[in-house]
C-alpha cells in the first residue's frame, strides 16, 4: 500500500477511532489485495510507511466480498462493479483477504 494511503488510514483511525473505520479494497490481484489488507491490520509488511509496526487490526474487505456486496444497492453494485466481478479472480481474492482478516482483525463480527 502506498505511503500516502497508509498515512490517510492512520489519520482516519486517529480521528474516528479504530472501531469506526472500515477499509475497502479494490485491488485487482489477490496478492496485492492481501498486502493492503495486511497493512491495515498487522502493519506494513515492507516496513516502509507510517503503518510499519502499527497493528491497527481494522475491519477490511475487498469490494467483491459478499459482506460488502450484500450491504449495498444491487443496481449500483452492478453498475459500478458488475463488469469487474466478471473479470477478477473473485474466489482467490476472497480467500486471501478473508485469511488476513481472520488472522489479524481485532473485531469479531
Amino acid at each position: 500500500m502506498d505511503l500516502e494511503n497508509q498515512k490517510r488510514v492512520k489519520e482516519a483511525t486517529e480521528k474516528y477511532g479504530e472501531e469506526n473505520v472500515i477499509v475497502l479494497i479494490g485491488g485487482a490481484e489477490a496478492e496485492a489485495a492481501g498486502l493492503a489488507a495486511e497493512t491495515v491490520t498487522a502493519g506494513d509488511p515492507t516496513f516502509a510507511g507510517p503503518l510499519a509496526g502499527v497493528q491497527l487490526g481494522l475491519r477490511v474487505y475487498h469490494v467483491v466480498e459478499p459482506e460488502f456486496k450484500e450491504a449495498v444497492d444491487p443496481d449500483v453494485y452492478d453498475e459500478q462493479i458488475g463488469m469487474m466481478e466478471m473479470v477478477l479472480d473473485v474466489d482467490e481474492i476472497i480467500e486471501e483477504v478473508k485469511g488476513i482478516r481472520d488472522e489479524f482483525c481485532k473485531f469479531n463480527d
Partner: peptide
C-alpha cells in the same frame, strides 16, 4: 511484482463489456 498481467486484464474488461452488451457469450 504482484501487478498482474496488465494487457490481459484490459482484454478481460473489454470482453466482459461485450458480454454485458450481449455481443459475446460469456
Amino acid at each position: 511484482a504482484g501487478a498482474g498481467d496488465v494487457p490481459k486484464a484490459n482484454y478481460k474488461m473489454i470482453g466482459a463489456l461485450g458480454v454485458m452488451r450481449k455481443e459475446l457469450e460469456r
